[in-house]
Write a protein that binds this DNA or RNA. Structure first.
Length: 211
DNA sequence: CGATGGATGAACT
DNA sequence: GTTCATCCATCGT
């Protein structure tokens, strides 16, 4: 019978129009949304708690600021695609925003694990849940996302997608701070995260206040 | 094909 | 707050 079948209904993917806005708007709107990855009928994912916006040509910290290369070409493709890149021999994942040709994106830095936690713990080596997906490279490792996922469509549930919220996050709980790990434009507060969330990366930024 | 760098992460003071 | 080991992909030769 169907007793062994998957009965969970996963969050429905956000529409392409969600991404068709400036990256700083999308970055804030993504807080509380869900990130999921399906492989072999196994779904892992959770609630997005930390993002950063990268503003295309006007932003020297943005990969797209120096024009299109083979590496960053996904950033210049249609909105709503997944941009994956390598850094320090690890991977980070972004959602492409605005429209094709612009080169803006939102880096997803952390999620609160919710689905497939045991699988993610195996990939990460049995970490506590608040250490599983805390930081962009840890997030990719836990979710099994790498360069082969570069360019996938986030508005379809085939592989990787961003879905609707499953819990309400109050706007006043979303705070901003400078982005982490960059050497240029390091003062601009384009990082968004949930205040006091133990799932957010970075050292003790939790008490910082909203703009 | 080798040199290089980096949107990291961990371990420090 | 700081340094720094790490190592794949990219890019220049």
């Amino acid at each position: 019978m169907d007793t062994e079948k998957q009965t969970t209904t996963w969050p429905k993917p956000l529409a392409p129009s969600f991404y068709r806005r400036p990256p700083e708007i999308v970055a804030r709107a993504l807080i509380g949304k869900t990130l999921l990855h399906r492989r072999d009928d196994q779904v892992v994912g959770g609630v997005i708690v930390e993002t950063e916006a990268y503003l295309a040509q006007s932003d020297p910290a943005c990969h797209a600021a120096r024009g299109m290369t083979p590496r960053n070409r996904t950033m210049f493709g249609p909105e709503g695609r997944l941009y994956v890149y390598t850094i320090h021999a690890k991977y980070c994942l972004n959602a492409v925003t605005q429209r094709a040709g612009v080169g803006s994106a939102v880096l997803i830095r952390a999620i609160e694990p919710r689905w497939g936690i045991e699988v993610m713990q195996q990939r990460r080596g049995q970490h506590a849940s608040d250490r599983l997906c805390r930081g962009p490279a840890m997030l990719c490792q836990a979710m099994g996302i790498d360069l082969q996922h570069d360019g996938v469509c986030l508005t379809e549930t085939t592989t990787v997608w961003i879905g609707r919220s499953v819990q309400r996050i109050i706007a006043s709980q979303i705070v901003t701070a400078p982005r982490i790990g960059i050497s240029q434009a390091k003062e601009i507060p384009l990082r968004y995260f949930v205040r006091n969330s133990p799932f957010v990366s970075g050292p003790k930024y939790w008490h910082k206040t909203a703009p």
